[in-house]
Amino acid sequence: MIRVPKKRLLSAAAALGLAVTGLTVAAAPAATAAPCTDIDVAVARGTGEPGTLGLIVGQPVFQAVQTRLLPRSVSSYGVNYPADLIQPASVQRGNTDLVNHVRTQAAACPSQRFVLVGYSQGANVVDNSIGISSAGAVVGGPIAATIPADLAPRIAAILLFGNPIRAIGRSVTGTYQGRTKDYCALGDPVCQPLGTNILAHLSYGGQAGDAASFVAGKV
């Protein structure tokens, strides 16, 4: 397997952070899951993304899923974490928050099911939360918490975009493999060894419709 130097991947991630930071958007108010909707979409945004769900992937994917699943009720939750390049515990904080959110919602809403969405660093958050360590990947880290096994059947679908663990030859296996769609655009240096096109890493919003169709087939 060809390995891409972590320094190069960090440079790509930094470029992404600068790219999205330069976008002029108003920060969204904190999004919380509605009390017991049919489906809760929990989103871990990418590094430096503005907005609670993230501008590049989270918001368009949530809107597409919400529309596709009508007339079922769909709520969103933006994972509360720094999504930062320089805070070493950024991924672990997101990992802990996502697992806590699923546990809390599952207890309060016995019929609710979940869709987990992660983009870039946010994909590492989701990986860790389902028991796939992102340690060693760009902006990754060791697992801090995992979704309890008894709640696994309620995770209807998982959507990952620009997932950094792919660049080190890792992927989602085991319990959640058949419920996961993992997008890696051609040339994306964050998820593809020897990728050189940072614009590819900014392209995933175009997959929102396909992602929503995948979710619809799982719920």
Rank of each mutant, 00 (worst) to 15 (best):
V4I: 12
P5N: 11
R8V: 15
S11E: 14
A12K: 03
A15C: 08
A15V: 02
G17T: 02
T21A: 13
L23R: 00
T24E: 05
V25R: 00
A27V: 10
A30S: 14
A33C: 15
A33D: 10
C36P: 14
V41S: 12
A42F: 00
R45Y: 06
T47Y: 10
E49L: 01
L53D: 10
G54C: 14
V57H: 11
P60A: 02
F62P: 03
F62W: 08
Q63T: 12
V65S: 01
V65W: 08
Q66C: 05
T67A: 15
L69W: 01
S73C: 04
S75T: 04
V79F: 10
V79H: 11
N80H: 12
D84R: 04
L85P: 13
Q87A: 14
S90R: 05
R93V: 01
R93D: 10
N95Y: 05
T96C: 08
D97W: 12
L98Y: 09
L98M: 10
H101V: 03
R103E: 13
R103P: 04
Q105D: 10
Q105M: 12
A108L: 15
P110Y: 10
Q112N: 08
F114G: 07
L116T: 00
G118A: 06
G118Q: 09
Y119M: 06
S120G: 13
G122F: 05
G122C: 06
N124C: 06
V125E: 02
D127L: 02
S129N: 06
I130K: 03
I130H: 07
I132F: 04
S133Y: 08
S134G: 08
S134T: 00
A135R: 03
A135G: 07
G136F: 06
G140L: 07
G141C: 03
P142W: 04
I143G: 04
I143A: 06
I143Y: 00
A144Y: 13
I147Y: 04
P148Y: 04
P148S: 08
P148R: 06
P148C: 08
L151K: 07
P153W: 13
I158S: 09
I158A: 02
L159N: 11
N163K: 03
P164D: 01
P164K: 08
R166L: 14
R166I: 05
G169S: 06
G169P: 11
Q177V: 07
R179N: 13
T180D: 02
Y183F: 15
C184N: 06
A185K: 01
L186Q: 14
G187M: 04
P189C: 11
P189N: 10
V190C: 03
C191I: 13
P193C: 07
P193E: 10
N197S: 11
I198S: 09
L199G: 08
H201E: 05
Y204A: 11
G206E: 11
Q207G: 01
Q207N: 13
A211Q: 09
A212S: 11
S213A: 14
V215R: 12
A216F: 15
K218G: 05
